[in-house]
């Protein structure tokens, strides 16, 4: 991220889909947001672009865990991406951008 000190509001919590993802756009970038109400933190944000499938689709994958790492599975070719580090489990050379997000009252904001 650049020198934005002002946190950007991405959406309301009520816009999120529990245990699943949606996509927001901020500063020209597509950000996939995943809402896991039972976890801490509750919201995860990674790039929406699938560098292997080559399309903006990661927000539409299934979330789950593999060896205790919280992951999303790409809906195109099913590779798993770690929601915390952005790393691709099947190919450690591929890493997605991760974004710092927080829940602020009833909003989801991009910090950093």
């Amino acid at each position: 991220m650049t020198d934005h000190k002002q946190p950007t509001v991405l959406c309301k919590i009520s816009d999120l889909i529990p245990n699943s993802g949606i996509c927001a756009k901020a500063q020209g970038t597509q950000i996939a947001l995943f809402y896991l109400p039972e976890e801490t933190p509750q919201v995860y944000a990674i790039g929406n672009w699938d560098p292997i499938g080559k399309a903006n689709v990661l927000s539409r994958g299934i979330v789950g865990d593999i060896n205790q790492r919280v992951v999303v599975a790409s809906p195109l070719y099913k590779q798993h991406f770690d929601l915390v580090t952005g790393e691709c489990i099947e190919d450690s050379e591929v890493t997605l951008p991760v974004f710092a997000v927080e829940i602020n009252e009833d909003s989801v904001v991009l910090t950093d």
């Binding site: 991405l10 959406c11 816009d15 889909i17 949606i22 996509c23 927001a24 756009k25 901020a26 597509q30 947001l33 672009w49 399309a55 903006n56």
Partner: peptide, 15 residues
């Protein structure tokens, strides 16, 4: 759920 972006009506320009 049927939106490209939760916070914008823009299209995915990479399509």
């Amino acid at each position: 759920r049927f939106k490209q972006f939760v916070n914008s009506d823009q299209e995915d320009e990479q399509i």
